[in-house]
Design a protein around this nucleic acid. Structure first.
Length: 291
DNA sequence: CCCGGCGCCTGAGGGC
DNA sequence: TGCCCTCAGGCGCCGG
């Protein structure tokens, strides 16, 4: 699912394809994905004619900075991904008009398609329909309650060990749950949380306020390590995630625990265990990661 | 205030 | 073979 590395990969792909293009139209067969403005007709009217000046990422959101002081924000949630290609719409259903990114069935759930002025399109494919699309005045977005509340970006230079410790200070609960909260740290989801904790040799259910200085440092290093690897390998290869060309990432070989229950730990050969933490599947080595 | 649980969705997979 | 039930999962929100 799209976490920081997957969203980052999507953003890079978009930067290479859609900068300086202008939105000329937008189609949807599931208009409730557009949350702001709530009325799809208004959304369409406001988006038309806006030019893409910049594409960037904040937390797990893709943000298109547009002309006239607007920004388009897309959160892909679990099964969403953005594809670049060409489609035609007839009687409310879409058809691909080139052999673009529809490489496998998971790409075939297009629910919002943005049309650009050069005939190119950006499509939001999302099997589960959880994705969220919002158009804001950039100023309102940047000063919005939600935007301001997001935690630090773990791959930014300003995210130092001291900053990380400060971030976790006073937090309670199980470490895995805490590092997955967007308002604590941005961009870490279920996959990379399990992976980071394995590298740091910390049990996912260990209370965050009982972590030693050494463990905090190990976790800090591990978070940066797995997210950086995720970006470098173009995102994960085992979820519904696809890049803008419809292809999987190549993180597969880097994976150590996620969805590997029963397989031997890469450090000690103990079978990886699956437990549920905060209603989410969680994978760890019961020997390397003790409570 | 903190934590658990729900809602939004639908394909996959298990049971019978 | 096919139907039905359950589950996964980001994350905001609600209720205890």
């Amino acid at each position: 699912m799209p976490e920081l590395p997957e969203v980052e990969t999507t953003v890079k792909g978009l930067q290479s394809k859609v900068l300086n293009r202008t939105f000329v139209d937008v189609w949807s067969d599931w208009e409730r994905m557009v949350k702001q403005p709530k009325d799809f007709k208004v959304f369409k009217k406001e988006l038309k004619g806006k030019k893409i000046a910049k594409v960037w990422r904040r937390a797990k959101n893709v943000i298109f900075e547009l002309s006239d002081g607007y920004s388009l924000l897309i959160h892909m949630k679990m099964t969403g991904h953005l594809l670049c290609g060409r489609w035609s719409i007839k009687q409310g259903t879409w058809t691909a008009t080139d052999d673009g990114p529809l490489r496998d069935s998971i790409n075939g759930y297009l629910h919002v398609i943005f049309f650009l002025d050069n005939g190119q399109m950006i499509a939001l494919s999302d099997m589960r329909k959880f994705a969220k699309v919002q158009l804001w005045k950039t100023e309102d977005l940047l000063n919005g309650k939600e935007f301001l509340a997001w935690g630090p970006e773990p791959l930014e230079k300003s995210f130092t060990l001291a900053k990380f410790k400060e971030t976790l200070k006073g937090k309670k609960g199980k470490v895995k749950q805490v590092i997955m909260v967007p308002m604590v740290i941005a961009g870490i989801g279920n996959i990379y949380a399990s992976e980071a904790l394995w590298w740091a040799k910390i049990h996912p259910e260990k209370k965050v306020d009982t972590l030693s200085d050494q463990e905090l440092k190990a976790l800090y290093v591990a978070i940066k390590k797995v997210l950086t690897a995720g970006v470098n390998f173009g995102g994960d290869s085992f979820s519904d995630y696809r890049n803008v060309d419809g292809q999987k990432g190549t993180f597969e070989g880097q994976k150590r625990v996620y969805q590997m229950a029963g397989q031997p730990c890469k450090k000690c050969k103990t079978p990886i265990k699956r437990i549920v933490v905060g209603a989410r599947g969680t994978f760890f080595c019961p020997t390397c990661q003790v409570l």
